[in-house]
Design a protein around this nucleic acid. Sequence first.
RNA 1: CGGGUAGUAGCGCAGGGGCUAGCGCACUUGGUUCGGGACCAAGGGGUCGGUGGUUCAAAUCCACUCUGCCCGACCA
Length: 573
Amino acid sequence: MRMSRLFSKTLREAPNGADCKGYEYLLRAGYIDQLATGIFSLLPLGFRSIQKISSIVREEMNALGAQEILMPVVNPGDLWKETGRFYSIDREMSRFKDRNDRDMCLAMTHEECATDLGRNIIDSYKRLPLLVYQLQTKWRDDPRPRAGLIRVREFTMKDSYSFDKDQEGLEKVYKAHYDAYFRIYKKCGLPVIAVGSDSGMMGGKVAHEYMYLSPIGEDTIITCPSCGYTANRQVARFQKDYYPEEPKAKELVETPNTKTIEDLVKVLGIPARKTAKALFMVGTFINDETGEEHTKLVVGIVRGDMDIEENKLQNAAKANSLRPAHEEEILEAGIIPGFGSPIGAREGTIVIVDDSVAKSNNLVAGANKEGFHYINTNFGVDYNGTVADIASAAQDYRCPVCGKPLNSSKGVEVGNIFQLGTRYSEAMNCYYQDENGARKPVIMGSYGIGIGRLLACLCEEYNDERGLMLPIAVAPYQVHFISLIKETDVSERIYSQLEAAGIEVLFDDRKETAGVKFADADLIGVPIRITLGNRSYKDGKCEVKLRSNEDEVMSFDLENLVSEIKDLIAKIS
RNA sequence: CGGGUAGUAGCGCAGGGGCUAGCGCACUUGGUUCGGGACCAAGGGGUCGGUGGUUCAAAUCCACUCUGCCCGACCA
């Protein structure tokens, strides 16, 4: 490709709003162009990188025996009503009516569609297992897109769906994906870790996420450096310490101006672990069958030395969503904010108590009276509720497996795998007949990789102060050929030779100064740079550099340039 | 959806009731340069996000609205 013809241009300055390096360079180098919030065009350079990533993904999926298909973006609402997700998914899924006033939606994932295909095709155990995948556009109307391609509304996702006759088969294909995903990221050059995760709206039990650890990440990952335990903080467990004592009767004490645990600790002269911390949320509960929804106040109680993990609280409350309660909503339930507790709260309030509180005695809790707390409150005596683990794991907490201190870091989710089980097959009547003629639900799994997000992470990982430096496996071109000599016939000939040899070459044929060409080459970050200038041309040579190591300049004979470049490509691939 | 912030040329920005709306980069033409973002000269490009209002006069003041970005809520 000739730079003079390339459908993009480089920018000297970063467009306003490009807050992280990778995103800034993707824009400045002309890989992508933003159309609206969370909606981007892929320009030729970006599209080529995406194609390279896609073919790596296809290679690995095909190796698993997965068959590529393409499912529709537009789905009938009725299909999604079968699983209840037409109603339970919030405005993140866009819905509309067709001309006949039928409910339609833009599929943000394809479990429903895949299950529908499954039930049409699978009749007998003899057909199982089956595995399909697609690379397809997803529209998810995220309330807060950010950081360029990291979090967008429209994106390409590789999603695969497995159909098995039993759990054993599911576990096998799940493990196959688990390993294949690591190979995919390795081939692309992205360091990732797999962590145990929440299954969220997908349902199902076992799930893993692939995380690229980076400060720009939005997820918090808990890892144990000693034994290797890893989990998303949303589900991460940890060992809690207990301090058993004999339960006493509760007692009202005056505690003016103590709205926080910190204040209480100061005024009463007790450790934070002797207090109960309450978080007030409003949960939305949706009936999957009818779509009717109602809200309830959800009170989470955790011991004062810990924090509440809202995702765990939402799961324990079985709510579709949670948001912080307004002051009026708290008051309505008979609770005084700042001095609040479930003691004396109105019927119908959902109380979720962390096991740390359930197993501790004589905690200080709000008295639901301005300026007063109770000391010596006890779960089961003074109030009741559902006991669950709703505490948030944090740095230096103890590993649930080995007890050593945990680490907390930020990460970007670049892939996920779910064991769905029979959640979809039962809801959608996707059954097969087994060897004995018994009718059984197909066991399913689903597996996703965000292609554009993967590119965005690679650009975060591979850049320097001058621009991108993507690995050759995912770079848009293998070679950037800069000609600085006047003899255009010579550079044209070299360009044709490289192209003819099947080398992917970006040829800077523009009438620009050397500085401009070098700066643009650095920005675009093609791995191998050939410079043909007067310095070496007179000796029949050209200079070759790697973008990743600009200090080392190699000198290649023009005579056998093609074969030398081929060797170099092979060496760094 | 809440809080913040911004919208003036392709990009980055200045101007803040008054006369022809400016600067840098980018772009066009001519010339000189020619190995790390060259120089000189001459040019082209704007309904100042939109609508309504105040005023003799609005890019500038007011109201509403749209859009982008950041933080939160939310989310794979």
